[in-house]
């Protein structure tokens, strides 16, 4: 018999292997779900050879959650939260680009906005707000691009010697 930890961090079971297979099929348990067989250790479900063939790949399997309503035994509730131990999705923060944009591409206020959105990506991921994190990530990227474009235009406009320099400063070049 197996005991499993649900998305709500509560323990369920003991249940049969048959029941575990059903929960996997329903997406209520996944490779990362923590499971104990008899008196063994708590291990991720993906490490049990008897269930391994049910997972296409540990990394591609979607974060699932435990069990159905109306079972004779206690079952883990449906929840939108990721299963215990499921990895967080990777949402790019563009932190390095934001800092480079702030330092190399003045005016600084534009780059600072990009850093603020970078910070929000991780803040929102911590709170489980994956959609919000993705929105902040896109905004951070767009502000980085905007900063670079504005800096380039300002540079050409303010110190527009890039082309005239070639002729005007020619004798200045090799010493």
């Amino acid at each position: 018999m197996y005991r499993i930890v649900g998305a709500d961090q509560k323990e369920y079971g003991p249940v049969s292997a048959e029941q575990v297979r059903e929960w996997i099929a329903q997406g209520r348990a996944n490779a990362q779900t923590i499971v104990k067989f008899e008196e063994g250790a708590w291990k991720p479900l993906g490490t049990y050879p008897e269930f391994a063939n049910l997972f296409p790949s540990a990394s591609t399997f979607p974060p699932g959650v435990p069990p159905p309503i109306g079972q004779p035994y206690a079952t883990p509730p449906l929840s939108s939260a990721p299963a215990y131990g499921a990895p967080r999705p990777y949402v790019p923060t563009y932190l390095v680009w934001s800092i480079l944009a702030t330092l190399c591409c003045c005016p600084p206020p534009l780059g600072i906005v990009a850093i603020i959105y970078s910070a929000q990506v991780n803040s929102k991921l911590d709170r489980g707000d994956i959609e919000g994190a993705q929105r902040a990530s896109t905004l951070a990227r767009n502000w980085c691009i905007a900063t670079a474009v504005v800096a380039l235009i300002l540079n050409f406009w303010l110190t527009g010697h890039y082309f005239s320099w070639i002729t005007a400063n020619m004798p200045n070049l090799p010493h």
Partner: peptide
Amino acid sequence: YRFFPQCPL
């Protein structure tokens, strides 16, 4: 040399 970018700020 003047071909380096200047800080707009």
